[in-house]
Design a protein around this nucleic acid. Sequence first.
DNA 1: CAGGGAGATGTTAGCGCTAACAAGCCCGCC
DNA 2: GGCGGGCTTGTTAGCGCTAACATCTCCCTG
Lengths: 342, 342
Amino acid sequence: MLTQGATRPLGLSDVAARAGVSLQTVSRVVNHHPNVAAATRERVLRAIAELGYRPNTAARALVTGSSRAIGLVATHINQYGPAQTLLGLEQAARSAGYSLGVTILDENSASAMRDAVDRLVAQSVDAVVALSTYGKAVDALRRFVAPVPLIAVQVGRGEDHPTVWVDQELGAELATRHLLELGHRTVHHVSGPVDSLEARGRLRGWRRELVRAGAPVPEPIEGDWTAAAGHAVGRRLAAARLRGEDVTAVFLANDQMALGLLNALHGEGISVPGQVSVVGFDDVPEAAFYTPPLTTVRQDFAELGRRGVELVLCRLNGAVRELEPVQPLLVVRDSTGPASRT
Amino acid sequence: MLTQGATRPLGLSDVAARAGVSLQTVSRVVNHHPNVAAATRERVLRAIAELGYRPNTAARALVTGSSRAIGLVATHINQYGPAQTLLGLEQAARSAGYSLGVTILDENSASAMRDAVDRLVAQSVDAVVALSTYGKAVDALRRFVAPVPLIAVQVGRGEDHPTVWVDQELGAELATRHLLELGHRTVHHVSGPVDSLEARGRLRGWRRELVRAGAPVPEPIEGDWTAAAGHAVGRRLAAARLRGEDVTAVFLANDQMALGLLNALHGEGISVPGQVSVVGFDDVPEAAFYTPPLTTVRQDFAELGRRGVELVLCRLNGAVRELEPVQPLLVVRDSTGPASRT
DNA sequence: CAGGGAGATGTTAGCGCTAACAAGCCCGCC
DNA sequence: GGCGGGCTTGTTAGCGCTAACATCTCCCTG
């Protein structure tokens, strides 16, 4: 029916001819205009089905100036969180009748961001969603005056554009408090790259909770989200323990780094959670199967994508809406335990 | 320069007026036609830069019938492999001047696949790339007569469409042989879902290698790519060992499942590689930090994406080209060791 | 029963761009 | 010196669709 050879020059006029109506009437049916007689609509619909007609989006975009497409500017799409958000985004967009154009930023510069948005705009997308972008690229995003609505997802709380975000600070507080309540004197932190707004949020939450509890605030260690970084930190912390430093609890800004840390500690013969408790962030599906299963903070990434689309749709209707941040959730597994006074 | 307020009604005619030439000449400059005087081209280029003109892709698509866009139909984009391939794909497409439209298949049915391709075609993409799709959806793909070139990436060796693929059988053989050479009498296999062509390829390679070596071929166990599945299998194999069965080597069709298995074996007090050797597949970045670091088979996913675009470009030029499969690579780490005769 | 209004349908004019053709120009050649 | 041919530029006609306006028909109201 739909796959009918390589010929596909069907237009409104073909349908119109077949249904015995004018081209405009077909257009009305296709666009669900109210003022079409039921019988006529029926006839047109049948003709459309028989012919396998599909409207030409390019023509429509040309005349309406809108393509019913959303452009996505993303980085780190190969990581669990962003990928999951992409999934939510695509699904929500699709069910709202929008298609998704994707551009990857392979550099965190302001110019790369400008180019990306520009490229998307040239494709006449109706809105642009920026997904977990970083550093300079985010700066470019703020006070960016694009000809279309610009929505930021997971780039921290936006100031100049509508934003959808998970409450990173809360998540970090949850993690830190959990460790403190277990009796640890303080909690060390391995952050993400500091030019990431998410990383900064987690860092803030961690620090705030320590301060609130009156616990000492150790110097945070900057990681780069990779397991390798976590591994390096693990060896470093193990050495610090040997020097007699008080390292019994570590909160890492994502699960990959936590995995690396776990691996390093295991290699150094330090037991988790016996000697050191570890908390990650994200709750990747594998976290439950790390050795030991990782206590971590769950984020609903797909929800983020859905809300992003929701915000886009609101904006397109002229409504300006602020959304509540998504609440993260602490998932306690086996990598955390009571502080052992040795 | 590019961000110049919310107004953006610039057209060829604006540029033409500014440069003092006809609209068509501007079009020629934009499209790199050869027959434009150098001085004129210069003048037009300047006008374009000054005005910040960007061609309207919808209009261009309408008149040329081509949008310089590639459509991607994908599933499992939240997993490492496909996500990585997406990255390669997008980058290659972009540097060839193509944009990427993404559609996710949320169901492996033939009709979902048809809808997805149809949706993409309606957006007048120039070609469709199907990325690691499954079961019925793949069946629909074969002998699918689309109005645009259709390229399959990572869906096994294609019969009706040009295909880019990693030699899964070879990878599985590598893994199996490695274990056999370590002195294991046989190798157990945890496969992916059998409606996945990749899973089937790995299964075939594993079986072939066992047969070649004259080793017994145990019943393969079907998994679903998740760590949870690997965990379940781990418990099952541990029980089998207790019953005296000869389980000393396991090859799993991906790293996530291997992680689950590792976790289960650890929980059962079975040492890896002391008592059981484990090999995964994919070499996700975390595999080097599993406990113990996982021996696995590396696939170059990004290369797959690049080749996909290459094939699209060839096809668009009318050339039909067959590409060699990408070679996988065995990465030996610490989860495999010599068989211990107990 | 005339007038008006609402609903149904048709007609027209582009959206911004490119392909095809047309026109002018300069050059070299016989 | 006239003329053909290549180079450069301009003109025209849509691509397939929708918005705005024009019609026409019917039915209801006073």
